[in-house]
Design a protein around this nucleic acid. Structure first.
Lengths: 204, 204, 204, 204
DNA sequence: ATCTAAGCGAGACGGTACGTCCTGTCTTGAG
DNA sequence: CTCAAGACAGGACGTACCGTCTCGCTTAGAT
């Protein structure tokens, strides 16, 4: 297709805009971010941004996707150790870079708006959750994790407490991480009650 | 008391503003909320709002605190059943009222700003977490939960997965709730590995 | 009349308000003056001011009337010398105190509003113009000024050029004053053409 | 010239704003003028006005400059008649259009603020005083006015009394104008005392 | 000695306007 | 077609004053 008509876009422009976006997100947060500010920081005019992204959320989603590299799935041979390492790695990428509040705010903004939630999941969330699934699956293969474990449940059981602790405490120390992962691992490794429902006996 | 000086504030005004705030939060979300809009909806002028709350976050915190009543701590005699009931009750108050995204966005906004995080915790979060602690403590007294269980960990283990599932899926069915609570309960009731630590001592 | 009911007004309060008004007029000009500011400066609340003066203009008129003392009519025996002295004295009281622009602005504000123009004339203007009339009348009595001279015309002929020069130049030096008064005196002393009217004799 | 960058301003917008400004000045006076009101009347938003003029005074100066056309210098061959005609023409343009108080208020506001006084003089005042100078100069050429007459003094002698009479009386009838111009003319035509200074003898 | 009216500080309140910032769109000229 | 530049309608921001009001308290003459 000859969409080569007219003057081609400068690729440096895209990069500059995304870089400016991330920088400003870190400085002012998601709520404080303005397209105007991004344009100024990227030495670009506003229409140039609007030509590429329809609105703030989409720009931020793409910027985050580029700025937060998916954590690699560790493979030490020990599932529990893999999870510890993965957890620290995730926290590194989010909390220590100051992008965690932004990610949260974008999620909050996109809830109930499927046009935003979809790209957020596809571009950002899913690629980053694959590492957890991979570690769990290796654990199942290895026999460390009961084979009937739902990957979604495992994911929520591991990530959820970490996120929640950070939400409530505003910080997440290495000790926190280790302790929470250990707790989740306790449930995970021994097998969550598969038959579970509200009235069922948990056990024994 | 000499703080009775000056014309007293009309209490209806406070109520009208908070009501308008909640209504608009539900309709437009936290990001879409404007003081201007609240003023118009409450049939009040902007200065009247600024006289009471210094900014959007503080107004929203107080509105949420008033609009989301703390869930009562159930006491059925069965700790696991109490937790199921409490979880459903919490989800009711947040997800089904459409206020969950707002609560999340306010948290995202307040992270890193201690002047916002403090009132958020004191006015909103802590009173609402007491029910969890109460149930856990009753469970410990009853012998359903190991006595060395940290209440914070228990809280994160229970609430975290629920929040995370909702965050990723945008919804939270009763089946989700029951299943996640059961999973958390598995870890909780058997006791988190107290001796556990990743590579080093969790605690001396 | 028993309007002595109730707690009497503190006379210091009146004085403090008027003093604050004049100070602020000098600092911020008439347009920049706010009742709020006057209240703060006078360590008084706004209602206390409104209890005494209905609005800004009336307050300012009274403040000016108190702050700009009417120039005394000099009586040296020489009409021309009297006028020179009077002109300098007037300029002193207005230009050199920084109140001239205020007086002008108040006049501008009151034009077309008879409720304002009346007190302005009665309280401020007329008492201050009496000196000119007195000097002119003494001049007529003395034979220095033609007896058919209209006092209004004389007043405008003397004061007008001074005001206008100040308006155009923003300043008024002693040389300016002397020169303009001499010029006006030339017309005044020889007699303005009494027979003059719109279509009548151009001259001779 | 590369100052043709960007979307050009709509000239109708400038015109609409200036027209609205003049209309409102006439209705509410200078003190009552609000940018908000001008914007509404011109069917324009406030930022559009602020893009063009930095503040109220500058907007009004430009509006006045456009709304009060400089009076042409009459040339009947008779200097005194020229002055009569010019005076009436000036009064027409200011008093009868209701703009005189505005002009006065702007002057009052600009005194002591050179950044305002400068454009006021350059855009408004000077172009409008040229007619007087022209008539005086023709009078000098013709021999009706002594050749050593200072144009500034002549200007103040003519315009000053008119302004002052209007200031004191709030009105200016044709009779007033004629009488005051005749009086000023008396001084002007016979020659103001050129040697004048505070001690010099005016006469005899 | 009490009553009652006014003064006064304090501050709420509905308003209006301020001057600024940002949004998303549009218009122009140049590449 | 891109892009810089910048105009534009629109909307919100947080602040400053306006003039009025409602309080509690004080002050002092009238009863």
């Amino acid at each position: 297709m000859p969409n080569e008509r007219g003057r081609p876009r400068r690729p440096e422009t895209d990069a500059a805009i995304l870089r400016a976006t991330i920088d400003l997100l870190r400085e002012t947060g998601y709520g404080g971010l303005s397209i105007e500010g991004v344009a100024a920081r990227a030495r670009v005019t506003r229409p140039t941004i609007y030509r590429r992204w329809p609105d703030k959320v989409r720009l931020v989603i793409e910027a985050l996707a580029k700025a937060v590299p998916p954590a690699p799935a560790p493979d030490t041979g020990n599932t529990r150790a893999d999870l510890h390492q993965l957890a620290r790695s995730l926290v590194d990428r989010l909390v220590h870079t100051g992008l965690a509040p932004v990610v949260l705010a974008v999620h909050a903004d996109s809830i109930g708006h499927d046009d935003l939630a979809a790209p957020l999941r596809d571009l950002y969330l899913h690629p980053r959750l694959e590492a957890i699934t991979a570690v769990i699956n290796r654990g199942i293969a290895r026999g460390d994790v009961p084979p009937d474990t739902s990957p979604d449940t495992a994911r929520d059981l591991l990530a959820g407490p970490l996120v929640y602790r950070w939400l409530v405490n505003s910080t997440l120390t290495d000790t926190d991480i280790d302790q929470l992962v250990d707790t989740s691992w306790a449930a995970l490794s021994r097998g969550a009650p598969r038959e579970a429902n509200s009235t069922a006996q948990t056990r024994r």
